[in-house]
Simulated assay, not measured.
Amino acid sequence: MFLPKENRRLYFDLLGPEGAAQTVCLAHSLTADSSMWAEQVPELLASGYRVLRVDMRGHGASETVFGDYTMDELADDAAHVITALDIGPVDFVGLSIGGMLGQSLALRYPDLIRSALFADTLPASVPAAESVWIERKRTVQDAQSLAPLAESTMARWLTAEFREKRPGRWRQIFESILVTDVAGFLGCVHAVRSFDFTGRLGELKPPALVVCGANDQGTPASENRRMSEMIPGGKYVEIADCQHFPNVERPDEFNRILIDWLNRS
């Protein structure tokens, strides 16, 4: 389904019965789309939750905005959908950039968020990664495609063992990278390179859980644990033997952690 916002359209899907007690909003990673939550949706529905998935601008079926983005602007898109559907407060779950924009959402729209689960994310831009982002940006601009980054991105997201065991699912996620809009990617890269919530996480009102794959290279477990310590009452859980997408690689464990968290929030 599409929702208009400022002469463009945001794509979302809202699953589950209207009478469900609570809605869970899922926010995806950079160069992914809402399909990255396929392993979570059935479990959430079976547990009695409604599920809202929103594609970020320039990702999936959401239309692109040209230019640089900020985390606040990405959070505003999510808030727009939640408000328009009148389903707040939601339990928010965001991974990678989804967790980054989720921090802005929870800080700026506390009435829309009942609880937050931030997975494999960061509380601020990493200056040491600046040269990496510059190179990725140049590569994508030269190719006018995400194809040159797809294999290396997948290697950071999922282990070689997962690719061997579930080649079909691996390919589905790989394809979501290929179809990501170049301008959408570049806009989000600017957001990733220019945010810092470290001085504000102490103001976070909703209860928050931080989850991370133990072998995540891009958003390391140590940084996720440190982030949880910045949040009042923040909790941290680490999932062994997986990288950046524990929700895909270790869905049973991730889902158990998620449902337990939702039921206790």
Rank of each mutant, 00 (worst) to 15 (best):
R108P: 04
R136C: 04
V126Q: 14
R138T: 11
L95E: 02
T121C: 04
L95M: 09
L95F: 01
R138H: 11
G102N: 01
E151M: 05
D111V: 06
F118N: 05
I113D: 05
E135Q: 12
F118W: 13
R138N: 15
G102W: 02
A150D: 03
V140S: 06
Q103E: 04
L122S: 12
P123T: 02
M100S: 01
S125M: 10
I113K: 00
D142R: 11
L112V: 07
E151Y: 08
Y109M: 02
L112Q: 12
F92R: 06
D91M: 14
T121F: 02
L149I: 09
L146E: 11
L149W: 08
L117G: 03
P148G: 07
L95Y: 04
L101Y: 04
S115L: 02
F92C: 03
L107T: 05
V140Y: 05
P148W: 08
V140C: 09
A119V: 14
A143V: 13
P110N: 13
P110K: 11
A150M: 07
P127G: 02
L122M: 10
A106G: 05
Q103F: 00
P89L: 06
K137I: 12
L101P: 00
G94Q: 01
S145F: 11
F92Y: 15
L117P: 01
L122W: 04
E130F: 03
Q144G: 12
S125Q: 11
R136D: 12
G94H: 00
R138A: 15
M100D: 01
V132G: 07
V126N: 13
Y109I: 07
D111H: 13
P89W: 06
R108Q: 11
L107F: 12
L117T: 13
S131N: 07
G99D: 04
D111A: 15
Y109F: 14
T139V: 13
A128E: 13
S125G: 07
A143R: 10
V93F: 05
Q144V: 11
L105R: 06
R114N: 15
V140Q: 05
S125F: 10
I97C: 01
Q103Y: 07
T139E: 07
V126F: 09
V126E: 15
L117Y: 00
L117M: 14
A119P: 05
A124I: 00
K137M: 15
R114W: 07
G102T: 02
Y109A: 10
E135T: 12
Q141A: 10
I113W: 00
I113S: 01
L95D: 04
I134E: 11
R136T: 07
Q103K: 01
Q141C: 11
S131G: 08
G94C: 03
Q144P: 02
W133N: 06
L149V: 10
Q141L: 12
P148T: 09
E151K: 13
D111T: 11
Q103I: 05
D111W: 08
Q141P: 06
R114E: 12
L112D: 06
I97T: 01
D142E: 15
